[in-house]
Amino acid sequence: MSAKNPTASPTTTAKDRRRWAQYLVDERAEARVYRELASRKAGEERAILIALADAEGRHEEHWLRLLGGEPAKLPVASLRTRMLANMARRFGSIFVLALAQNAENRSPYDDDPHATAAMRADEKIHGEVVRSLAARGRTRLSGSFRAAVFGANDGLVSNLALVMGIGATGVAPGFVLLSGLAGLLAGALSMAAGEYVSVRSQRELLHATQPNNDADHVLPDLDLDANELALVYRARGLDEATALTRAQTVIGAAHASDRTVPYRRQPEAAADLETVGSAVSASLASFGFFASGAIIPVLPWIFGLSGVAAVVLSLVLVGAALLATGAMVGLLSGAPPLRRGLRQLAIGFGAAAVTYVLGLAFGVSVT
């Protein structure tokens, strides 16, 4: 067996062939995922996704050679790969790409002697390619999505802690309900106001640091030899010689045409503002998602439950929501979703436990 191009050998076992067949169907399924995503894209992103699918096709051919052709019976694709395919058909690419990034980074070829070095290298590079593609979607989501996710989690945790603490004192169910609804409204308004001020201030800061074209109309009057405009470019970080050359070009054009020639060219500033997002949309998202998270702990009391039954159901509902939001953040950040979900669950239940114990200390136990 060549280390550079592994082939089947007389010592090949049935277990080896089953593993190769699994690799074969997984490579085919992954290629379909990339082609499905490519069908919804255009331009460079489409070309990149098609190239990834073609690379998976080359890996598929390798396993076919080792198997000696198409097996009579093939296993089903792995659960992860089938889930990716279903998501690619039904949802946006950002979640699929985030999952694919994790998958590419955990390639089974690293420890398989029958995979070529080129295949192992392909998988590592694919992880970086998918990471870059996913980063574009993460940037577009970063403004309102950040407010939405953190708003929902804050609503879940803060109102769960509130109703657990109030409920542990042994007060009437109606009082727990009113406390939860008051906490929902107060928290949602506070989150919305805070998010608006935060994003608005950030946008104003970016605007204040952007170069403007207020002085464009005086460019034709500048002395070409003295060239004060060069100081502008030097203040922006250019060296003296480059700044002087650029300033002479701009002023020379202004003199020649006797008209205003804008000297401001800052395309990255628009990208920064897009990343920050709209203050109003972030505020509304924060309010809505905090409220949607904060209502969940109160649902058992809304539907007339009380005592231990209400507490247990509230914990179950909030636990499921915390796992879901934590897993979603994990997916979008390229991190293991289960680990992020469990971390979020531990944080939420930890806060609720503290207030529950305090409620017991100042009241009576829930009956």
Rank of each mutant, 00 (worst) to 15 (best):
L52H: 10
M83V: 11
P75W: 02
A42N: 13
G68W: 01
L67Y: 02
A88P: 05
I50S: 03
T81L: 10
T81H: 09
I50H: 07
R46Q: 13
R58H: 07
A88Q: 00
L64I: 10
H62N: 02
H59P: 07
A42C: 12
H59I: 05
E44R: 15
L66A: 01
A85H: 14
A85R: 15
N86E: 13
R80N: 14
L67M: 09
A85G: 13
M87G: 08
L52Y: 04
D54P: 10
P71C: 09
M87W: 06
P71L: 03
L74C: 06
W63L: 11
A72Y: 00
R46W: 12
N86M: 15
R82G: 09
R80C: 03
L66C: 05
G69Y: 04
A47V: 13
R58F: 10
R46L: 04
A88N: 02
R65G: 06
G68V: 07
A77R: 07
G43A: 03
A55G: 11
H59Y: 06
L49R: 01
I48T: 15
A88W: 00
G57F: 08
L84P: 02
R46H: 11
A47I: 10
D54Q: 15
H59A: 02
R58T: 13
E56S: 03
L64M: 11
L74E: 07
R65D: 10
N86T: 14
P71G: 01
H59C: 08
G57K: 11
L84K: 00
R58Q: 14
T81S: 12
P75N: 03
E45M: 12
L74P: 00
K73N: 05
L66F: 01
A88R: 01
N86C: 09
L64T: 08
A53E: 03
P71E: 01
G43C: 09
S78C: 08
G57N: 05
A51Q: 13
E61R: 12
A85L: 15
A55S: 05
E56M: 05
I48F: 09
G69R: 04
L67C: 11
E45F: 10
E61Y: 12
S78W: 05
I50C: 01
A53P: 04
K73W: 02
I48Y: 12
E70T: 08
R65H: 13
E61T: 07
R82P: 03
R82N: 09
N86W: 09
L64C: 09
E44N: 12
R80P: 03
L84V: 03
A42F: 07
R58P: 06
L52T: 00
A72I: 04
R46V: 00
L79D: 11
W63S: 06
L67T: 13
L74G: 11
R65F: 06
L66Y: 00
L52K: 01
E61L: 15
A51T: 07
A53Y: 08
A88S: 13
P75D: 05
E45H: 10
E60Y: 02
A77L: 10
E61N: 15
G43K: 06
R80H: 12
A85M: 14
G68R: 00
R58M: 07
A47E: 11
L49T: 09
E56T: 01
A88Y: 04
A85W: 12
L49D: 06
P75V: 14
E61F: 13
A47H: 05
E56G: 04
P71R: 01
L52W: 03
H62P: 00
G43Y: 05
A53V: 04
